[in-house]
Design a binder for these strands. Structure first.
Lengths: 160, 160
DNA sequence: CAATATAGGACCGTTTTAGTCTTATTTGCG
DNA sequence: CGCAAATAAGACTAAAACGGTCCTATATTG
């Protein structure tokens, strides 16, 4: 599906909202209210983020959550890692059932892993602070692609 | 889960194998045999690829499948598009339930879409021929391996 | 002690995915 | 013509993932 889960989506929303007031605590109910999300869901997201030390929590009557670090030092990749259950990876393995002919499967697999790190690089390069900017963060789409296979890209851009 | 489906994985395997002999036809049973995949599954994959005109098919006794175009002109993004059901997109929408406070949700959403195109750019820049190379295709070494530094990267990359 | 909050985890319904199967259609060949 | 081989299309099933809820425990404040 090549899609980030809703939990990750909520995570970026919640964290970016908290980033607006880095010095105070937000309770789950407050966050759910202002962001129009369900309370248990927000709770689940924050618990997961807390386990990965992206947010800190304070229990008790006046407790709540806050970002563990400044928004500029938290990457989207970290949020994805915290909220997506399975470890990051575009494929589990291209050659699942034993060896296929000529190890070509393993070649494919190695290349998938390369693509993988490239995608991860994109996610790693965007911080929570970037996500909050009203103007879209500058992520040049073809910066990575261009130096790989220029001919393909040229063809694609013409036909799409 | 930010992962490509198994069908897509199979698709790259099957297509890269067919790319080895661009001038002949491969039957489903042959492909399944050499790649150690199940026949119906291979059939399913090829049917989907055929609907998207990535492979051509010939029915009948000596029929089979072949790549519709040279491997160098087929991008991984096209295979993903053909085999992933849902349209490409990392999030469906970051602000699902109406408007959240201050439109921050929509800001997040816009930025997810930017990230989206960047990821797609990566996939778009890799051709099937690249995937077949024994040496991993050059997808820009992950100089971004470590955390943080997002600000620097975001600034360095120019807007689309 | 009581109220308020998070922590952890179990639980369930829905959706998606992977895979199989059935039926129809096309083509080659004796 | 008629049979065999092959794809086309889609229905169907089992399993896994996802989204969401709920329950119980624990910590903090006053």
């Amino acid at each position: 599906m090549l899609r980030v889960s809703k939990l990750t989506d909520y995570g970026t929303l919640v964290m970016s909202h908290m980033a607006g007031s880095p010095d105070r605590l937000f309770s789950v109910t407050e966050l759910a209210g202002t962001l129009r999300l369900n309370t248990p869901t927000v709770s689940k997201v924050l618990k997961a983020l807390g386990r990965h030390n992206l947010v800190t929590s304070v229990r008790g009557t006046r407790g709540g959550y806050a970002l563990a670090r400044p928004a500029g030092t938290i990457s989207v990749a970290e949020i994805v890692d915290a909220l997506e259950e399975q470890p990051f990876g575009l494929t589990e393995c291209s050659a699942l059932s034993g060896t296929c002919d000529l190890e070509s499967g393993c070649r494919i697999r190695a290349n998938w892993q390369r693509i993988n790190t490239a995608v991860r690089g994109v996610l790693n390069g965007i911080s929570l602070a970037d996500m909050m900017q009203p103007a879209p963060v500058a992520v040049r789409p073809s910066s990575i692609a261009t130096r790989v296979a220029p001919r393909v890209i040229a063809d694609k851009l013409k036909t799409q």
